[in-house]
Design a protein around this nucleic acid. Structure first.
Lengths: 342, 342
DNA sequence: CTCAGTAATTTAAACGATTAAATATAGAAC
DNA sequence: GTTCTATATTTAATCGTTTAAATTACTGAG
């Protein structure tokens, strides 16, 4: 019925001990001085019986599962699913498989996933952490579990991470808007203390300041993760009606941008004539918006591969120095931040 | 150092046998007649030592891993990542976690993933199968592994699956184009013998026939999975230049639609004036295209949840009758298939 | 005080692999 | 024919659980 052939079955089939079979399978014939004749016999029996080693048993013995746990805010967000794809490929190349979970920006769900994955003996975690999970990450580290943070990070924690220079990226984007003649620049961000978003806000403000523009509190619009759609609509409508209060928008993430674009589309306000836009990350929506969006592009390739490599290095050497891998971002310029009409 | 507390540690700490601890942890105190006093002692020790059961060991013993293997063509495709998200949530609700892999439309990669996941003792598979993998699926079934196919399917295989009625969906979409005055309707599909795509092609042809329109071979454009971008561009350019050869397009998937829209955007040909469009699935691109696209919408929610439920039922009862769960699709009408100008 | 009967706990095998240590076998040297 | 060595193979413990079966402890009846 259940065709599963175990190592023991192979041994029994040949009338030899399991040890011999194990040695041969793991190419330890030399060290274990298995005779060539025997090795050949075993190898052909393995093929004949279609023996497949039970990874669970191997894991139990070795304490390693060759599995990486990936936790992101939401796997259905193309930003994360694209990274997931890269991580999957890179991990498999190195003999690991990936289990994933979406934390939904909830610290509680994050902890649940951490526990569930740890009990499954993942060898390491790659995490895009959510708000207020510093303690979780710290606790995880204390157990000796290799962890790499991606996209987001906590400066207060000693841990490997991979991300762009968010301050500089935002600064450059906003500076570009200013250099193109915009002076009243609003930003849509999340209402969160996650450092990567804070840095984007800081970069935005710093660029304004550097160009002698006085930041106005009402320019900074914030949406909560839990209520994006409504929050974005409300804030955007306030900003656009009854009269347009700014001449440019800077969007802190692709989700915020997409939601905002819907409102702008309805409003009839012309981009870039009346309104310049720069967004973060990428999206099909940015390409198909009637005035294709300029955006800050992060290399997901570099980020995903970097994360896998860091985490595997850490698996191999628990005590190596922590790495802060800063990925180069670039500003992709298109129509949406073009010239303003008077 | 490695803080991992085993059941044995708990037992040793209390000076009792591991059996007792195991019984209490698994709430088998009654059957095993563990004294209340002891149960209490054990429970508090478990908390105090922060004992977390090793799922790997449990899996080895039980032969069940509470893990579902999800194989799709490409997790970075929003269609699949959205399903993945739904599957993840539903599976976790039922105590399962999900490992995923992208087969890249390659039968070979598909087999690799199948093997890797099977060795990890997944309890079941949810698969969006790729071309020429009928034997793989059949072989998998023969081992007794629960399998559910999603989105795609093989009529020749007895297996649980979840999908829409692709023939009818295509038929309805094309019929709608015809009823709106289009007569020369092209379709962009994949060059594949995967039944779901075949059915879409058949539905398209049947709708033409039913309305007395003679199908022309050159209307059916096909791209290969391996070379989508170039194939789509070539075929579309042929169809659009030097003169527009049709008055409507029907796109068989969201990827094909998005790639095609890029060409249409460049061409300057007006939608829906000169060209009506209906696509399959959803995409931000459809919303932001200047003439928002009509599309055939599949309920990913129903599909994902349906798949998880079917697969868990099958885990519990290997011999239950196979289910063909047909998800209702619907045609969402927007501007892109509107009225034609003469 | 013994014995039966029930209650409480322990023992030990098992899941499928790995591997150090023990043992068996064969050949060479004297 | 011993003895020694090198080669080939087996034994048995182990990883962390589960669980049937065995054992021990207790209680009350006679």
């Amino acid at each position: 019925m259940n065709g599963k052939v175990s190592l023991k079955d192979v041994a029994k089939y040949l009338g030899v001990s399991t040890a011999l079979v194990s040695y041969v399978i793991n190419n330890k014939e030399k060290e274990a001085r298995v005779s060539e004749k025997m090795a050949k016999k075993i190898r052909s029996a393995v093929v004949k019986l279609n023996y497949q080693p039970n990874q669970i048993a191997k894991s139990l013995k070795s304490g390693r599962s060759n599995t990486i746990g990936l936790i992101v805010a939401d796997i259905s967000n193309p930003f994360f699913s694209s990274i997931a794809r890269i991580i999957e490929d890179e991990a498999r190349k190195q003999g690991y498989i990936v289990i994933f979970g979406s934390s939904d920006e909830s610290a509680e769900k994050s902890q649940d996933l951490l526990n569930a994955f740890q009990n499954r003996q993942v060898d390491a975690f790659i995490i895009a952490p959510v708000e207020n999970t510093e303690k979780q990450i710290k606790a995880l580290q204390k157990t000796g579990m290799p962890v790499v943070l991606i996209d987001r990070y906590f400066p207060t924690i000693q841990v490997d991470n991979v991300h762009i220079d968010n301050f500089q990226a935002a600064y450059n984007a906003v500076e570009h808007l200013i250099n193109n003649g915009r002076r009243k620049i609003a930003m849509m961000a999340y209402d969160t203390n996650l450092p990567h978003i804070q840095e984007r806000k800081n970069g935005y403000k710093a660029a304004l300041r550097a160009h002698g523009i006085r930041f106005k509190k009402e320019w900074l619009m914030e949406a909560s993760y839990q209520n994006i759609e409504k929050d974005v609509a409300d804030k955007m409508n306030e900003m656009l009606f009854p009269d347009l209060k700014v001449d440019a928008f800077f969007f802190a993430t692709n989700t915020l941008a997409v939601e905002s674009l819907k409102i702008i589309n309805q409003s009839g306000i012309k981009v870039p004539d009346k309104l310049a836009i720069i967004a973060f990350d990428e999206s099909d929506a940015f390409d198909f918006f009637y005035s294709p969006l300029s955006y800050v592009s992060q290399s997901l390739e570099d980020m995903g591969k970097g994360a896998v490599n860091l985490v595997i290095e850490r698996i191999k050497d628990h005590s190596k120095k922590y790495t802060n891998l800063i990925i180069k971002e670039k500003l992709v310029l298109r129509k949406s931040c073009g010239t303003k009409t008077k």
